[in-house]
């Protein structure tokens, strides 16, 4: 029964040998690049949803179909604290750390390209009392940059508004108006948006223009 009594010494010696050997296989630096889809799955899906449609419960916007240059630009802004670093920007402060899950600019580009391939969808209306015809008038100001079809314009750095939730656009317009978004000195495009948002004098005007925008997406 006790015949193997002396056997622990060699085992011990063997182990002491193994440990530094394994430590020597330092896989650091071997950092394989993940595909955009894998990055989206691991870092974005939980909040923005598998199809990028966003969720009202956690106030995440729809990002499906947004142009790659825009997603990339916003991710860079979040990562560098140009967007989402205002003390009053509750949701922005949640997004800012999430953007830092991406390890480098290459990953930002990859995931942005993937987001652009997701299909935008018409979102259900959640705001009541918006007058689309009155909103069409207000939209005149927006039209110059975001285009008559609301699909945005890369030259003017204006994002697409199609397929976005009305409650999200509402909250962002309010943030622009209050200087919670677009106030950072390095946020040039946000800084352009800020005076534009001022043309919508009150909540009713915002609702009207959002009612019009929702007619743009099908």
């Amino acid at each position: 029964m006790y015949r193997m009594k002396k056997s622990h010494a060699p085992a011990l010696a063997g182990l002491i040998f193994i440990m530094p050997l394994v430590s020597a296989c330092h896989p650091d630096g071997a950092r394989p690049t993940l595909s955009g889809a894998e990055l989206y799955d691991s870092s974005c899906k939980q909040c923005h949803g598998a199809t990028g449609q966003g969720q009202l419960g956690i106030t995440t916007p729809a990002i499906a179909g947004q142009a790659a240059w825009y997603v990339e630009g916003q991710l860079v802004k979040f990562r560098t604290g140009v967007r989402g670093a205002h003390p009053e920007d509750y949701d922005g402060l949640r997004m800012r750390p999430m953007s830092q899950q991406l390890m480098n600019v290459a990953e930002v580009k990859a995931v942005s390209a993937y987001v652009a391939t997701l299909k935008p969808r018409k979102q259900p209306t959640t705001l009541q009392g918006g007058d689309a015809t009155a909103g069409a008038g207000h939209y005149g100001v927006c039209l110059a940059c975001h285009g008559p079809d609301g699909k945005g314009n890369e030259l003017l750095k204006a994002p697409s508004l199609v397929g976005q939730h009305d409650w999200y656009l509402f909250s962002q317009l309010k943030k622009f108006k209050a200087g919670v978004r677009g106030k950072h000195p390095k946020d040039l495009t946000g800084g352009q948006m800020q005076p534009m948002s001022m043309t919508l004098v009150d909540d009713q005007a915002i609702k009207n223009v959002l009612a019009h925008i929702s007619t743009l997406s099908k």
Partner: peptide, 9 residues
């Protein structure tokens, strides 16, 4: 000191 998900003010 005001904490929130995920930032300090």
């Amino acid at each position: 000191i005001i904490a929130q998900q995920w930032a300090w003010t």
